[in-house]
């Protein structure tokens, strides 16, 4: 079978087109994405965390962040409820344990690296990308600085360089993507002296968590936070205290963020397809009405004139 050059190019073009269409179409559907196979995750066992801030220090070092306001050895900062900032991609906060008073619990907060990230779906310039390693990475070279990612993130993680006049960036945890692709552990995981953080394949991390529930049922709440929250995340948490007590939201649901806007976006073709037809129809109807009104008027005028004329001519006949 011989194929002409033109035919071949046509096929290539069609294939290219269908890939693009396929891509954008799937982005607006409710297709379930369970994460890239063999992607990594980090399991944070809050029952093992002692709030030493070693992870914060390591994060600061590997990401070349400016020195903190208070040194990492100062543990009094744990008392206040801190959030991620442009200078700190991860923070550890201390909470009272409602089950055991006097035994506080610690929770390390950073980007959860959602399987279907709200930030990535909200970004109008695709500055965020879920990589195959599991990390959600950000590309400052295209970012416009609209900050919709910060609005969209249900975990309130992305931070913005408000003090930068010309080159403001979004700043957040990268799950140490550059280190991971070189075969190194994320900075925080490597630094943790208590093995409260475990790094590995996401499926394995879930298995480890379940195994711990089985072995120590009294120690844990039987729930892996992040397994399904917001469609699942690449950071997973287990805890002895209810997650709510650790300042984590339990009302986020399991629907991935892109699904929340998919419905609205899929109405675009309906509007684009339906409105012009409908409006052109209405225009035609009103135009026609106008024409009828005009002919009616003309007829009425004509008949009135006729009547007038015949009335005028009648007396003449009589006389």
């Amino acid at each position: 079978m011989s194929i002409s050059r033109r035919k071949f190019l046509g096929w290539v073009g069609a294939a290219g087109l269908s890939t693009t269409i396929g891509k954008s179409a799937s982005a607006a559907t409710n297709k379930h994405f369970a994460g890239y196979p063999d992607s990594f995750a980090i399991l944070h066992d809050t029952t093992l965390c002692v709030g030493c801030r070693s992870c914060e220090a390591a994060c600061n070092k590997v990401n070349d962040l400016p020195p903190p306001d208070r040194p990492f050895t100062d543990l009094s900062v744990l008392e206040t409820r801190r959030r991620t900032t442009t200078k700190a991609f991860t923070v550890v906060n201390k909470y009272d344990n409602p089950k055991k008073s006097g035994h506080p619990v610690f929770y390390k907060k950073q980007c959860n690296h959602c399987l279907e990230p709200a930030c990535a779906s909200a970004c109008f310039v695709r500055a965020f990308k879920k990589t195959k390693t599991g990390a959600v990475v950000y590309d400052p070279s295209v970012c416009v600085g609209c900050r919709y990612c910060m609005i969209a993130c249900p975990f309130e993680i992305p931070t913005y360089e408000y003090d930068q006049a010309l080159t403001p960036r979004i700043r957040k945890c990268t799950m140490c993507h550059p280190r991971v692709i070189e075969g190194q552990l994320p900075g925080c995981v490597e630094a943790c002296p208590m093995e409260a953080l475990s790094f590995g394949k996401r499926e394995d991390m879930i298995k480890i968590a379940r195994e711990r529930f089985r072995k120590y049922p009294d120690r844990y709440v039987n729930h892996i936070y992040g397994e399904n929250e917001m469609g699942g995340t690449s950071w997973l948490y287990v805890s002895g205290a209810p997650f709510k007590a650790l300042g984590m939201r339990e009302d986020l649901g399991i629907k991935p963020a892109p699904e929340l806007t998919a419905g609205a976006l899929s109405s675009v073709p309906i509007i684009v397809g339906l409105w012009p037809v409908l409006l052109a129809g209405i225009y035609a109807v009103s135009k026609r009405k106008e024409k009828f009104a005009q002919t009616d008027q003309e007829e009425a005028v004509a008949s009135a004139l006729d009547k007038d004329r015949s009335e005028q001519s009648q007396p003449e006949e009589e006389s």
Partner: peptide
Amino acid sequence: VQQGTTSVLFE
């Protein structure tokens, strides 16, 4: 440069 078609803001 890059179209973020999944974003409502893009629309």
